[in-house]
């Protein structure tokens, strides 16, 4: 066996995080990077310098030397620059027995070197020239960049999806739901057979003449006003949809009181009949309404409900418009006086 001796200054270049200890356990030398991380170890006992996390060793010289060649997980008891509330950095080490029962422990940063790098402001100068730490850092930085890019990307995708969904179920002019949204919702309610609900079909009266005599811009203004009134006359959870040019559908959930819907219908007609201003001119419309209730049916069928509400609506039209009627699913429609 050939024996080599090495100057500690050479050792500092080759193993900048190493520590030398005597047979009695006293630390006689530490590398420059070690000194930067935990200053003042020289002269202290091994057990006072290092906490052996795994395997759990007392720190006595004989104890430590028995583990030569094995990976140790350690902490430096006098680690500097620890931010408040944070613990010691975890380091790795191996023990190398030297002559006369002396030893060397070579340390390296643990699995997450970022913490120690930042705390102790370590630079490439603190590692050996061939240490892959710089490459590791490139990976850390690239990884952080990629993660934040993906976060931003999925945020943008979420927003785009929400916007697309909104666009698919919203009427652009009035901001009300569209026919598709109403069909979907009604479909769900009729499948689930949950609490009772009421359905109201509204067709504007005299709207065509507003469009014909005052133009489409006036018509658009009227539709916006109608949407505003309808929204105000329902509870916040009720769905209001524009299902055709001048046709609207209202869905009242948790509602089995036809009398209440008749009241609401009357109030809607009253408010729609108030003149709507368009550039100093008055637009006058009214509405015919048909109502049906889920409680009228033994089995719920969305198409049947819509068609019955339509029949009631046309009964209102036939009876002279500007009024509301309630469907009788057996076939008949009862007419209620206007308002």
């Amino acid at each position: 066996m050939s024996v080599i001796s090495v100057e500690t200054s050479t050792l500092d270049h080759a193993l900048p995080m190493a520590l030398l200890f005597e047979a009695c356990g006293t630390v006689t030398h530490v590398g420059p990077t070690f000194e930067k991380i935990a200053p003042g170890a020289v002269g202290k006992g091994l057990a006072g310098v290092m906490n052996f996390v795994h395997p759990q060793l007392s720190g006595s010289c004989a104890d430590v030397l028995r583990y030569s060649g094995r990976k140790l997980r350690v902490e430096l008891r006098h680690e500097a620059n620890i931010p408040p509330g944070e613990g010691l950095s975890t380091l790795r080490g191996t023990v190398v027995p030297l002559s006369d029962r002396r030893g060397l422990i070579n340390l390296a940063l643990g699995a997450d070197p970022g913490v120690a790098l930042k705390r102790h402001r370590l630079t490439s100068r603190d590692f050996t020239a061939t240490d892959p730490m710089v490459d590791f850092l490139y990976l850390i930085e690239a990884h952080a960049m990629v993660l934040s890019e993906f976060e931003r990307l999925s945020e943008r995708l979420d927003q785009a999806r929400t916007a697309a969904e909104e666009a698919a179920v919203t009427d652009k002019l009035t901001g009300l739901r569209n026919r598709r949204a109403m069909d979907d919702h009604l479909g769900r309610l009729t499948v689930d057979a949950g609490p009772a609900f009421g359905l109201m079909n509204i067709d504007l009266d005299y709207f065509k003449s507003v469009n014909d005599t005052m133009g489409h811009a006036a018509g658009d203004r009227v539709l916006e006003e109608v949407a505003r009134i309808l929204r105000q006359e329902v509870r916040s959870g009720d769905m209001v949809a524009r299902v055709g040019g001048d046709e609207f559908m209202l869905l009242f959930e948790n509602c089995a009181d036809v009398g209440l819907l008749q009241q609401i219908a009357g109030r809607i007609i009253q408010r729609l009949e108030l003149p709507i201003d368009w550039q100093g001119q008055e637009c006058r419309i009214s509405a015919s309404i048909g109502i049906t209730m889920s409680s009228y049916y033994d089995t719920l069928d969305a198409e049947r409900l819509v068609s019955d509400a339509d029949s009631a609506l046309y009964a209102s039209k036939r009876a002279g418009r500007a009024r509301h009627s309630v469907a009788r699913p057996v076939g008949e429609c009862s007419m209620e006086p206007e308002g």
Partner: peptide, 28 residues
């Protein structure tokens, strides 16, 4: 930060340019 860490002096940095492509390729 990465450029500074790559070399302890400006001349070190110049020579580390040769490794930039490899380093970038590992990451991305």
């Amino acid at each position: 930060r990465l450029i500074r860490f790559s070399g302890t002096s400006f001349v070190d940095l110049l020579f580390s340019l040769e490794e930039i492509e490899d380093r970038a390729r590992i990451a991305l």
